[in-house]
Design a protein around this nucleic acid. Structure first.
Length: 473
DNA sequence: ATGTGC
């Protein structure tokens, strides 16, 4: 493989083997993965072999090794030119994403006892880890179908939220094309008892404060100001999305050959978007996306109740955006508008100012892009930039540098909690082992990743947030 | 990420 540096934050992999387009990696030299330990550059090249792929197989600065596609990967296929959809291009945690809420409260107003009260309240109110608890217990599969079809809209209809919330959700809270009938029985069973639960791994709910504002005008449009207290929620579609991914990888492994498709890695199993199997996957995937949105809506409501009880203040939704999704979008390719299936896996949509899909009050500001940091480190709010080079996409987080196993050997959970609390960050975990696996040393530096993303022209910084307290899945 | 593996 030949990796050519094109500019400070852009590398090109020239086509070789079956690659139909080049690979493009947006990163500084220091952020590039170590090929001895991480095969994600090879994965960028593998993705470039997929039928119908256009422009390039892209990777964001937080890229690392994933299932088939790299995490931090963006690839678009031309729907009307035999373009494929691949579950590995979305990931197991379908529509994993981030929701940010802003309190009408400044950091200085938040006393020590209030922080403790909030953290204890959230500790009790936010189901997480491997427990079987959730905010909502659905009556039956019929009610789950409503969640799968209508997402956060259904939660708001059921009075778990206010209509304004939906204006600040991607796709106003429900992805079109969701087809609950394509969701298998096992996925349904796993999904029934998990609406309103964080899960584990890198999922969290944090109380944060706006540490720095880079663009006052855009931050103001997003409802953010320096010193403001916020709540960030990072979670996905739990066992339901995982089961859907498992089921459809299996279906596509069986049927890809029927369409004459061969791939360099069986984890890239895919079928044409327009095939019955492709349509079925996209219908089930959109249903899982809606499940994840309802999940975040319910957890936000739980946090609102705690904030109201302890501080008497409200939480306004800034935005809710996914970073694991395939979407049918229109983009210009070689001067012509084409319908594309844009896979973003560990990559965030970043609509620029003026984009027609933005709500009217964000027209001049662009889409809020929410980047969750590692436990104990900063998170970012960004916005899209006109003429962005990767189908209006940017990074999604810090990106793992050590495996879970390696991370757990670096530090013990108890010690990590003491360290964070000594640094003024309150911690409410789910398990000591889970905490240790998420130690900041196991991740790349978020500030460096965001520098590279902005330097590559993918996005622009709006605000930096720092943690006050973390409720860890 | 995941009732953490075939």
């Amino acid at each position: 493989m030949r990796l050519v540096q094109e500019s400070d934050y852009r590398f090109r992999i020239d086509p070789y083997g079956g690659m139909r387009v080049p690979g493009v990696v947006f990163a500084s030299r220091a952020l590039l993965p170590d090929p001895a330990a991480d095969k994600s550059l090879e994965q960028v090249a593998n993705v470039a072999t997929l039928p119908g792929v256009v422009d390039a197989s892209y990777a964001m600065p937080d890229m690392h090794w994933g299932y088939g596609f790299p995490i931090g990967g963006v690839a678009a296929t031309d729907v009307d030119a035999g373009g494929v959809v691949s579950p590995g291009g979305v990931g197991f945690d379908i529509s994993c994403g981030v929701r940010l809420l802003a309190a009408d409260l400044d950091r200085q107003e938040l006393t020590e006892p209030a922080v403790r009260g909030l953290m204890d309240g959230l500790d009790a109110a936010i189901p997480r880890g491997m427990s079987h608890r959730a905010v909502w217990t659905l009556h039956d599969a019929r009610q789950l179908r409503e969640v799968l079809a209508e997402g956060a809209r259904y939660a708001v209809q059921q009075h778990h939220g206010v209509p304004r919330d939906l204006e600040r959700c991607e796709d106003t809270g429900a992805m079109a094309g969701a087809d609950p009938g394509q969701v298998g029985e096992r996925a349904v069973q796993r999904g029934l008892g998990q609406v309103g639960s964080l899960g584990s791994g890198n999922h969290f709910l944090e109380i944060q404060a706006v540490d720095r504002v880079y663009d006052e005008r855009v931050a103001g449009a997003f409802g953010l100001r320096a010193g403001q207290v916020c709540v960030m929620i990072h979670c996905g579609s739990r066992g339901l999305g995982h089961q859907i991914c498992t089921d459809y990888v299996r279906v596509m492994e069986r049927t890809a050959g029927r369409f004459g498709i061969t791939v360099p890695d069986r984890q890239l199993a895919c079928v044409p978007v327009t095939s019955p199997e492709g349509r079925a996957y996209l219908g089930a995937m959109a249903a899982a996306a809606n499940y994840a949105r309802a999940n975040r809506q319910l957890l936000a409501e739980a946090a609102r109740h705690v904030f109201d009880r302890i501080t008497g203040r409200e939480l306004a939704l800034v935005y809710d955006i996914s970073h694991n999704l395939a979407k049918l979008e229109t983009h210009e390719v070689a001067g012509a508008a084409r319908q594309l299936c844009v896979h973003r896996k560990g990559a965030t949509r970043a609509l620029p100012p003026g984009h027609p899909d933005l709500p009217a009050d964000l027209h001049d500001a662009g889409q809020p892009v929410l980047i969750p940091g590692t436990m104990g480190t900063a998170s970012y709010v960004l916005t899209g930039r006109p003429g962005g080079p990767a189908f209006a996409s940017t990074c999604h987080g810090a990106g793992r540098a050590l495996s879970r196993h390696q991370a757990a050997k670096v530090v013990r959970g108890q010690e990590l909690r003491r360290r964070l609390e000594a640094g003024g960050i309150a911690v409410r975990g789910a398990s000591w082992r889970g905490l240790a696996e998420e130690t900041p040393e196991a991740y790349k530096d978020i500030d460096t990743v965001v520098d590279a993303a902005q330097g590559a022209g993918l996005c622009a910084r709006v605000a930096r947030l720092v943690p006050i307290g973390v409720v860890k899945g």
